[in-house]
């Protein structure tokens, strides 16, 4: 998967929205990623050129912040909560199950771009633990069996 010309037009639009200013670099990167879910090399090259920022700096910023992804993300973003409350309620075993079912370790995406797996440190709904969140939807009190059902419900 690569950015298309249409995407680069999108990149140009976002750059223009921020006035093409170098100090808007992080905001531009965030907006581009919000639209195409990751930051492809050609988009980064375009941003560096248009904002007149050295590519080395763009590389530093995009690898510094965990929020940026330089690899494609899956259609579904799975977040397994590893916070204290979820941890004591068996989050590790939930994570094991998710890893086994998806074949992914945290931070990875499968080649079919179906799932991206991440762990998070607290989703803020500890009473529901253990919690997994998929595409922003929270699944609380998941058992190992429920976890499997939930994952299978995504195409």
């Amino acid at each position: 998967m690569n950015t298309t010309i249409a995407d680069l037009a999108g990149v140009d639009r976002i750059i223009a929205e921020h006035g093409g200013r170098a100090d808007a670099l992080i905001q531009v990167l965030l907006d581009v990623q919000a639209e195409i879910s990751w930051l492809p090399a050609d988009a980064l090259a375009r941003i560096a050129e248009r904002l007149d920022v050295p590519p080395a700096l763009v590389q530093h910023i995009t690898t510094f912040y965990k929020a940026f992804s330089l690899v494609p993300k899956g259609r579904h973003r799975v977040h397994v909560c590893m916070g204290t409350a979820c941890h004591v309620r068996g989050a590790l075993r939930i994570l094991d199950t998710v890893e086994e079912l998806t074949g992914l370790a945290p931070g990875e995406t499968d080649p079919d771009l179906k799932f991206s797996l991440e762990t998070v440190n607290c989703l803020g709904c500890c009473a529901l633990g253990p919690v997994i969140e998929i595409d922003g939807k929270t699944h609380g009190n998941v058992s190992l069996a429920r976890t499997e059902d939930v994952l299978k419900s995504y195409e």
Partner: peptide, 19 residues
């Protein structure tokens, strides 16, 4: 700007930009 930093913390490294 042929060489820059990547990543942070204990994983911080320098990296040449091949192009």
């Amino acid at each position: 700007h042929a060489v820059g930093f990547i990543d942070r913390g204990i994983r911080k490294e320098i990296s040449f930009l091949p192009e």
